[in-house]
């Protein structure tokens, strides 16, 4: 059986998502953002939501998300995506709104918007990529940076006395009555990727069914910020990040 016999349309079992633009993505090699974009593109297409979905992109590494997934997008100011999504979701109740937020967007400048949108139970999907660092601006500390973790603004490692404690924002979201589904996933192994896709699908289903706010945190890697190879970054994430940000559902009503 020659390879060329195997490679033919009827044997194809995995294809690049149709909603993912065939352009070079600016993310660093091995960055989790790319995997998450792929899953979002797959879920939207598989649920037939292409014509109803509006994404709200953040300021952060995913600031160019609107170039990659072929749905309507609105670019929010840093941290304001949940407010932007709240309005569009209420003004266009038949559309499905998701925000795509980094850790700075969600748990630093956008804390109030994130918590209040969730507390109002807006029927939106909040995708929260937590890589514990500010990648786009060059690797500075994020609220989720771990104690002892070196970043451009904690060059000797984060200290509680100077920089406070890592913020488990997703735990806060879970106690808000407005959230119906709050989960923490990752995309570092095929199994984890599948689980993240299932989580995203559930979140979008909740939005369609207007069950309230769904928060899907993806614990992610930042190879350039962490100064590790993609493979090593995954190992570091498993060893350190999962300790502070354990995977699994925090709420699923």
């Amino acid at each position: 059986m020659e390879i060329n016999d195997i490679i033919c349309p009827e044997n194809k079992v995995y294809a690049a998502p149709e909603l993912l633009e065939q352009v070079h993505m600016h993310y660093c090699p091995g960055c989790s953002h790319g995997v998450i974009h792929k899953l979002v593109a797959e879920v939207i297409a598989e649920m037939g939501l292409t014509e109803k979905t509006i994404g709200v992109s953040p300021v952060g590494c995913a600031v160019f998300a609107y170039n990659y997934i072929d749905v309507d997008w609105v670019e929010a100011a840093h941290g304001r995506a949940p407010a932007v999504a709240t309005a569009i979701s209420r003004l266009w109740p038949e559309n499905v709104l998701f925000t795509y937020q980094g850790d700075g967007d969600m748990s630093a400048i956008g804390t109030a918007e994130s918590i209040h949108a969730a507390n109002r139970g807006e029927n939106i999907v909040m995708i929260f990529v937590n890589n514990a660092i500010y990648g786009m601006t060059g690797g500075q500390m994020a609220p989720t940076t771990l104690v002892g973790q070196k970043t451009a603004t904690t060059p000797y490692g984060r200290r509680i006395d100077l920089n406070g404690h890592p913020l488990e924002i997703t735990n806060l979201m879970a106690i808000l009555d407005g959230t119906c589904y709050v989960t923490r996933q990752a995309v570092h192994t095929p199994a984890a990727v599948r689980k993240t896709k299932a989580a995203l699908k559930k979140a979008f289903e909740n939005a369609v069914a207007k069950k309230g706010t769904s928060v899907v945190e993806v614990v992610a890697t930042c190879n350039s910020g962490w100064k590790l190879s993609p493979e090593k970054a995954n190992e570091w994430m498993v060893e350190h990040m999962f300790e502070k940000y354990p995977l699994g559902d925090l709420k699923n009503e």
């Binding site: 609105v74 932007v84 569009i88 918007e113």
Partner: peptide, 14 residues
Amino acid sequence: EVAAINMVYGGAAS
């Protein structure tokens, strides 16, 4: 007020 103006931005964008 910050959230409110960004809601306006979102509504206007749609």
